[in-house]
């Protein structure tokens, strides 16, 4: 894939991301779900069940199963060292160890069950939420929100960074205002955003955009300013116009830096998403755990945290892999 094709693919992705958010139902099965009579409001909380340690999963079996899985994993990583990534195996083993200790601490009643429910209860709870479609609704709400604001941040941050880096006059006028906005942490904008946009999606878009925008903007500026003068001059010597300098020298050479900005921006946007959802919306993973907190439904709180963490790891892995691909030629 040539560089230009990659750039084009990225642009198409961004605009697809922006348009999908304004069209169609929240997820593929939503219409069918509505027709079947199940109400799709997020207040449709699953009915509370008394939770008892190991009601459906026997904690002893669970601990033994996790231990066996850990041993198998280690054996597999020793035998097929080429195919199994070692850091992943080690991370999974450490997490398995934590899970076992956690389960045993609760099993022997060393801590209050209401404050720290065991992994078995969390798994049962999550499975119940998934079966009712409750978890999917919140995951999709969060992801839609995150991606819309994130793509908006790319679509505004990269062009603005380009303008600021290239035009002195523009940057002198705009810089003070951006600096003013940058030094206030995004959550501090939250009450203000609620005043302006009300409860719902728009304030959370604003907060996530704010979190993701500045890393992207600053990295774009520094990437474009770091373009080597000799590259610009050589293309000018060969008779290139101003557009050629922008399109063929500046943007390609700044691209890896911009991509790093995008990755960092995504991480901060992810933090801001959860913050905004704790306060300002009525659906989403952050809302789910805050709501469960109000009901003292600790298994859902912990389950939601695990889901949020897994999505974080997933996206981080993807972005790191993509970054490696992008900066390969450097």
């Amino acid at each position: 894939m040539s560089f230009r094709a990659k750039l084009l693919a990225l642009a198409v992705l961004i605009f697809a991301g922006l348009t999908i958010n304004f069209s169609g139902p929240a997820f593929a099965g939503q219409e069918a779900f509505e027709k079947s009579g199940g109400p799709v409001d997020t207040w449709n909380r699953p009915i509370e069940k008394e939770f008892v340690v190991g009601k459906d999963i026997d904690p002893v079996h669970f601990v033994i199963g996790v231990a066996i899985a850990m041993v198998l994993l280690l054996v597999a990583s020793n035998t097929f060292a080429k195919f199994v990534p070692v850091p992943l195996v080690r991370a999974l083993t450490s997490v398995g160890l934590i899970v076992i200790v956690w389960e045993m601490v609760v099993y022997y009643k060393l801590v209050n069950q209401v404050l720290l429910p065991p992994p078995t209860t969390v798994i049962i709870k999550l499975q119940g939420h998934w079966a009712k479609g409750y978890l999917q609704i919140h995951i999709l709400a969060s992801l839609k929100r995150l991606f819309f604001a994130f793509f908006l941040a790319i679509a505004t941050g990269v062009p603005l960074g380009f303008l600021i880096a290239n035009f002195r006059k523009f940057s002198d006028y705009v810089d003070p205002l951006f600096n003013l906005m940058r030094v206030v942490p995004p959550p501090a904008w939250l009450p203000f955003a609620i005043l302006w946009f009300g409860i719902g999606n728009p304030p959370s878009y604003f907060i996530i955009w704010l979190g993701a925008f500045f890393p992207i903007l600053l990295n774009t500026i520094s990437g474009i300013k770091d373009t080597q003068q000799i590259h610009i001059e050589s293309i000018q010597t060969l008779g290139g116009s101003r557009m050629d300098v922008y399109a063929r020298v500046m943007i390609p050479s700044a691209f890896p830096t911009i991509f790093t900005g995008i990755r960092i921006g995504f991480g901060i946007g992810w933090i801001c998403l959860v913050t905004a959802e704790l306060v300002a919306v009525d659906a989403g993973l952050g809302w789910m755990i805050e709501d469960a907190r109000n009901l003292l439904d600790t298994p859902t709180v912990l389950g939601g945290m695990v889901v949020i963490m897994m999505f974080g790891i997933f996206f981080d892995t993807i972005f790191r892999a993509a970054e490696k691909e992008v900066v390969k030629w450097q």
Partner: peptide
């Protein structure tokens, strides 16, 4: 990778 605010309700 767990965002700190997600720990808040807990």
């Amino acid at each position: 990778m767990t965002p700190p605010p997600a720990i808040l309700p807990f």
